[in-house]
Amino acid sequence: MKHKQVLRLSVVFEELKEAQVDKIMCLCQAEEYEAGGTIFSEKSPAKNLYVLEKGKVALQMHRLVEPGQLGGRVTVDIVAPSEVFGWSAVVEAHPYTLTAVCLEPTEVLAIDGARLRALMAEDHDIGYLMFRRLIRVVACRLDEARQLLVSERMQASYA
C-alpha cells in the first residue's frame, strides 16, 4: 500500500486509474541503498525505471576531458522523493546516460523496464498517459538545463 501511494504521488503515474496503477505495481520491486551507494552507473544496461520513495539521489555524468578520455563526475540533478529517474529503461533500452548515487539512506521502487515497455505496448492507454507525463517532466528538466547553461555562459562571458 505504501509503495502504491508513492507511485500515485509520482507525476508520471498520477493520471493513471487504479487498475492501471495495479498493473504497474506488479512490475515493481522495493530496493534499499545506503548513503554513497550507486543505484546504476553510466553506460550500464538500463534495466529499471526508478521512483524515489525516500532519500536523495544525485545524478552524475562523466565529463569528457579529451576525446575518449573521461574526467571526474559532475552532478547534473538531485532527485527528490516521488520523482522518477532512469528514463533510459522506458524510452529505449539504451544504456543509462547518468550515474545515480545516493546522498543519504535511500528507498526506491524499481520498475522492470522491459516488462513496462511490454505493458505500454499492450495497453496503449497506459503508454499514452505515461509518455505524456514523462515528456512534460523531460521538457521541464531540459528547460532547467538550458537556464543553467545560459547563466553559466553569461558568467563566463562577463568574467
Binding site: A58, Q60, G72, R73, T75, D77, E152, Q155
Partner: peptide, 18 residues
C-alpha cells in the same frame, strides 16, 4: 554568478569527490 546568484546548487558531492 552575476549579481551573486548561486549557480548549480548541487555541487556538494562533486566538490567532495574532487
Amino acid at each position: 554568478g552575476l549579481d551573486g546568484i548561486p549557480l548549480s546548487r548541487m555541487s556538494g558531492l562533486d566538490a567532495a569527490m574532487s
